[in-house]
Each structure stands twice: as C-alpha cells, then as structure tokens.
Write a protein that binds this DNA or RNA. Structure first.
Lengths: 242, 242, 242, 242
DNA sequence: CATGAATGAGATTTCATTCAT
DNA sequence: TATGAATGAAATCTCATTCAT
C-alpha cells in the first residue's frame, strides 16, 4: 500500500508550513535598528541567527561574532540574554525540538482512521526533515556531544511524552480494528519512521557523492517519501494479510 | 520473518572483527619511542589518534596538539605526513570509508541464497555501526560540511561501485527465483538498510534522553537488529506472498 | 602586664557597636521598593552594597552591576549619586575612615588615667579590626593604588588631626606622672598599635595557611589582644622601671 | 636596648642583596630576541614582568597584554608555560614567598648569640620589606582573595616549617641563657616582628597622606627600624630585668 | 526619579601552523 | 628525522557607562 499522490506534500508542495526557515536569515547584517528596546524581538533575532549559524557550521564552527552581525544585535546582548555560547546553543536546541514536537501534536491524528493517520505522520516527518535541515544538523551536533546539552534541559525531556502517547494510541486503535499488527512498540516504530527519512536527508551530501546521484532532486524526494510510506505500512500490516 | 538467533552477531558476539577500534587509543601519550624511524608506524599512529580525536569532537573540536600528544609523535611529523589538519581529516575519512567497504566485499554474499545473503548484509551493517561509532561520527561531521572533503577524494568515490553491484546482483537473483519483489532499486534499498541502523546508533544519545530508555543496552541492540531484519525482509517479500 | 579580662571586648563581646556590618548586606537583591523616592535611603543602600562588594573583591574586582543588584537600586541611580565607579569608591573610602575616627573620639580617653586610657585605645583598635574586615580590605586596596583616591579627598585628611592630638595628650600626661617613657612620638606609637592588630587580621588568611593555625579562632583572637596590650604597655614603661 | 647604628642596613645600605628587584623591569618592551628558544629564560622573563605588573596593579588590575609586552615574549607563551592568568599569578606568589624564606635561612642565625640573632632577624625583615614592595603588595592581593591561591600551592606550605624552627630554637637558646623571657610562642613573635614593619611599609601611602608625613623618607625608615628593634627586644627581656 | 537594554572598547584565551635547534 | 617553543590571527567573553522609554 502506498501513499496516494494527491495528498503528497512534496507533489502538492508546502502543505505543512515551515516554522523557522533558514532562508529568512540573510547573511548581510540587518539594518541598524537604532536601539530598538524590544527585548523579545532582540532575543528572537539572536536565536534565529544562532540557529542558522550553528546548524550550518556546528557548535564549534559557529562564530559568535557572525551570529551577532547577522542578527543585527550588539554582541554584548548575546551574553546578556544567553550567558555564553553554550547557553545560546542550548536555547537553539530547545526551540528546535519544541518546534517539531508542537507541529506533530497539531497534526490531530486522533481524528483520522489509523492507516490514514499513520501515513500522515510518516509523510509529515519526512516533509519536516526536508523543510528543516537545521533540525537534522542540530541532532548531529548534539549527538557528537553525546547529548550533554540535551541532558541539561528539563524542558526538552517533557516535550516527548505526548508524542509517544499519540503513536501508542494509534497503534492500539489500529490493532483493535485488525488493521495493524499487534504488539508493536511505539518508540521502536517512531525510531524507524524517523530513521528512514533522517538518514537520507542528513546524509544527502555524502550519499549523493558516493552513489553519484543527486538525492536532493525533487522527484527523488517524492519517490523517497513513497518508499518510506511503503516500508512502514507494509511492516504494519497484520500477519494474516500477508 | 525474523533473523535466526544462531546467525545473529550480537548474540554470538564479535563475528566480524573490528577494524580500527576506538578503544585501542588510550588517552595517555604513547610511550616515547625514542626516534622510531619507522615511517609507516608513525603514519599509522597519527592516523589512529586523529580518528579517535576527530570522531570524538568533530573536525572543529579536534585539537592538533591533542592528536600529536596521543599519537606520541611530534607535531611536526603530522604536518610532514598529512600537510595540514584538513589533509589529516581527509585521510581519516578515506581510511574509515575504505574499512567498511572492504569488509562488505569480504562478506562473500554471492555464495549464499538471496534471503540468507540479504539477512547477512543487513545484520553486518547493523553490527558494523555498533562496533564502529567513529564511522557514524565521521559521517555526521562530513555531512555538516556538506561533503566538501569527500568530494575532493577520488579514492572514496571509486570504492562504492562494487557495493551497488553486489546488492544489485542479489536483488536480481532473488527476483528471478520469486523470492523478492521485482523492480527494487539497489541504492534505495541500501539507504533503507543503513538508515534503520544508522539513525538508532548515531542518535542514541539524544534518543535515549528524550525517550528515557537506554538504547545502548545490549538486549535492546539485539532486539533492534531483529526489528531491522524484519522490516527489510517484509518489504522485500513479493506482493503475491502477502 | 596584661589587660584585665573584665574590660576585654572580646571576652565581653560587642562592647563597641559595629557601624556598618558587612553581614547586613545580603547577597539576594533587596525587596523591590517600588519607587522609593527617598534619596538618603537610596544613597545609603548603594553605599552599603558598594562597601561589601568593593571590600570583598577590591576596586578592580568589584562589579557595578553587582552593586546595583545588591542594593536593590537601579544602576542609573548609582551614576546619578556618585558620578562613576571611582566616585563611589571614594565615598566608600571616606565613610569607612570617618567611622573609625569617629568611634575613636567617642572613647573619651581624656577621662581615664593614662595607662587605662592606653589599654582602652589599644584594645579598641584591635577589636575594631576584628569587627570591621572591610576597613582592612579598603586600606589594602587603597595602598595598592598608592593612595591616589585618598589624596583627592580633603575630608579624610582633616579627620586625623584629633586622633594625633588625643594620643599626644595621653603620652604627655603619662610622662608627667612618671608612668610612661618620655619622648615618644604619637604617630610612631599609633602606627605600632595599629600594626600589631592590622597585620594579624588583614593577613589572617595567608598566615593561617602558611603556619597551619586557624588565626580566626576566638580564643586566639583574645590571646592576640592580650599580646598586643602586653607589647605596647611594656614598651611604654619608663626606663627606670625596667 | 636599641640596634647599634653601625650594623644598620639602611645606614650601611644594601647589606642584604635584593633578590628580584622590580627596578630591573623596564616599561619599554624588551628588544625582540628573535626566537630565543631558551625556555628557562623565557619563563623567567614572563615571571619577572608578571611580578612587576601584578604587584603594581593587583591580580584584577594586571593586564596579560602588558605582561607579555614587558617580558618581550609572545602572549601565547604565557599560556604555554602557565596555563592562564591565575596560574601565572600562583607562580609569582610561589616565587615571591620562596625568595624571602630562602633569604631568611641564609641569615645563619644559629651562629650568633640570641640577642644578636634576634636583632639581625628583625632588621632583616624590616629591610626586606623596604627592598621588596612587591612582596607586600602580593600579600595584600592574596589576602583580598582570602588566600585561595595560596591554599592551592603545596609548595608554599612546606616553605615555612624551617622558619618556625629557627625562631623556636632562638627563643629556647635565649631563655636557657636567661636572656629572653620564657614561654614565648615563635609564631606569635614572628607575626609581631613582621607586623611592625609590614603595616608601616604596606600602608605607607595612606599613612603618609593622613598623617602628613613622608614615611618613605630615608631618615624615617632608619628611625622606624630602630623603633621596631626597640619594641621587640624590650618585649623579649626577661621579667626580672625590668 | 526610575528602569534595564544596549553599547564599544578591550580583556583573556585559543589554535593551527612555523621555525630554530 | 625529530623536537616543542614560538607566533599571529582570531576567537570568546567582560565591563563601565549611556540612553530610549
């Protein structure tokens, strides 16, 4: 069973709005705002610039000066609001995780029948990775650090209970209706769903090089989406159906 | 269909010998070798230390001084053999890629029937990721760099043709015998096989944190191996079988 | 000859009330005073916080932000009342010197017979150093600066004439009555009296460390007081008595 | 009993050679030594410049750039040899303490009769404070820091046992011969000896200002030396003699 | 009078690389 | 070949002071 083309977000693009597009951050310094005195705005500007810089170059490669310049804010403010580079990084991490977890909840999967809900989740996840390379980069950076920053953040750990609950309910509903295999662990399944998209997108540069294919080409992205749905839905089919 | 326990490398540990174990690199400086005058040995020592340092901290986080100290070799030698830090990184990258590709070829998959060969490949890949965290780290680092170093290396690009050939042959043989679906692309399939293990292992630190599970625990690794085989083999089954 | 215990301020504690105890300055910001509009109070709060911060960390180590926070007063007020950090420091210096000189005059030494008056002065000085570590710190800081701030303050220089007068009278009275040696210079003597306590208290941290004794322990302080009185009174005895 | 003028180090100047004169450190950068490659010399140059800068301005007031410039050494070397500013400060502290303790031992007090030995020690100490203002400054700085650096240094703590031993022996010898009071504690006495000179010299800037006397004037220094000897020797006389 | 965000100058520290020995 | 001291450029971070509100 495959995803129907009409609902496919890559073919019918931008079904799911990007939350914080990297593209919005221009390299040129923002026009001097002559003492804006708007703390929230300043904080947000720094965070936006930091996300772009850190996800592009990693925590070690990112330059505080560059972040300050891009955000159009005095460097000193960066320390005022975030303490130091690491504090800034932690905030970027928290915001970035919060964004995807919030978007997932807003999918409202409870309202759909289990297979449709599952396809929607799988495609959403895939599309999210396409739209948010910064999320992928950040995961890579954080894992290189053995998640030391993530472990410091209480906020992040509490973000994930809802996700597991949603998937768990979905699997139970599906199993009760005889549409899904029984006994599937929601965390295992989520890891598999994420894995199929993450590896492709996060490693698109090396994979494109070693396999001599442009994995970023739009048709390939569409095809990969179908493939992922295919793999997951096949796996979920109850045994008697096979 | 699941992997039989008797062939499972995690249960029957260390079926595949690690090629360049990170563990071998102690943090203490190597015993002074009093003018070793053994170029190959010096080169290898530098490379080993550099692999450990770079995969632990990324290219930007790695310190040239630390690499020199760990390898017990004078810093000047490092520049003598590898030109600069980037050259050293490139060599690390090449060696690391060569190791996995060589190991794959040595699996001798042509000698097995298609499903057995496929299971072997899937489990090998999974086990390799478990044994070689440095490979995962390097991929992460290199993708953060948008594969700029990889693209410079002619050596690496030529390493991958055999892999695609092997998988392609395997799929064709299986399809001819009615054991696999037809029309599966070998690159797509390899990406899926790698994805299912890579994401889990590369992101084990963040995933363990956000889901409150120790993904490094041995029983979970065994279970994940079975899950991956299950997903892949189910996907490969021909339609009429389902 | 030793000080009698009944008049000893350490044994009969808190004979002389502390004027600006460091202890009163809590590290937590003072409760927001919602637009106090009480200039004197504001000034005093700043001065108290500044004394604590500057004497704890020196002029260079003190932070204007910290002083503002501790005093519960806006930073701008600090500049309003004291001009700048140096002006604030100068005010702290003046207040601190004024406090000890005022307390000395209030001893009313003229009313006592010379030996009793001298013992009272010596013990007062010793006790004052115990109760006012901030005074010792400030002297240290100011001398590191070669007294440049002190020299700017007309107020401070005029504070000391009375002290010299009091000691001078005391010595003359004692010599006339045959109780003290003749020809002792009051400034020399005051420096000696202060020296015997100052060095012990100001350097108690280093001295405790290098000699492996806790010089801050109360019994030791009592004993040191006796020792100082002993040294001074022995020195003052007329030659024929020895 | 007073010190005889003929042996007085201020009158017969420089009896005791200064160990590390601040004067030797010129403010102008040392002539570029074109890659001297003499580690000991480099280390010493940094230490000399650091001692001058830190004792003149305190730890917080001292500038790493200035130290580098004055020592004619690349700033980076400072971190190479001493880790950071605090490490450099600790080394300065250790060297400075070691210098006075070494000089004390070289007095060879055991060879003199007790009163002569005591006078020599008292005058040495006084003269040392005159010749080494950097020692006084450093004590002040360190006490402002509550001796946190000193406490870290094992080296310094072991330097002081000999000093206490020497004084202790001296007092015992003197008491046995009926020349000194019995029962005097060597640490108490040393603190008193040091106090009488330290306070005068360390606080000479403030004291000169508030008392309107130039305490740095040579005749006054001579007189103060006599006074200190007088105070100490009077105190040590056995009771029956008085 | 009151607030605390914002600033610029300058502080400490880091690091890949070179070079005298 | 081998050593590790030395370097310059640039990184992160600090701080007294000012200024819009």
């Amino acid at each position: 069973m495959t995803a129907s083309a009409t609902t496919h977000p890559v073919l019918a693009p931008v079904v799911l709005p990007p939350i914080s597009k990297e593209d919005n951050v221009s390299k040129a310094p923002a026009p001097r705002q002559t003492k804006s005195r708007d703390p929230e705005r300043t904080r947000a500007a720094i965070l936006r610039a930091a996300t772009a810089e850190i996800t592009a170059k990693g925590l070690n490669g990112a330059r505080v000066d560059t972040i300050a310049k891009r955000s159009g804010v005095n460097k000193r403010m960066l320390y005022h609001y975030f303490g130091n580079k690491q504090g800034l990084y932690l905030s970027v991490l928290e915001e970035t995780y919060a964004a995807i977890r919030t978007a997932e909840i807003e999918l409202n999967l409870e309202a759909l029948d289990p297979p449709a809900a599952m396809r929607k989740l799988v495609l959403f996840t895939w599309q999210y990775f396409i739209d948010h390379p910064e999320f992928l980069s950040l995961l890579g950076t954080e894992n290189l650090n053995r998640a030391v920053y993530l472990k410091k953040s209480k906020r992040i750990r509490h973000l994930h209970a809802p996700l597991v609950g949603i998937i768990s309910n979905l699997l139970k509903r599906g199993a009760r209706q005889g549409l899904f295999r029984a006994g599937i662990d929601p965390v295992d399944l989520y890891i598999t769903i994420a894995a199929l998209g993450f590896f492709y997108m996060a490693n698109r540069h090396t994979l494109s090089t070693i396999f001599g294919r442009d994995l970023n080409a739009k048709p390939r992205l569409v095809q990969r989406g179908k493939h992922i749905v295919d793999v997951v839905m096949t796996y979920l089919e109850p045994a008697e159906k096979r």
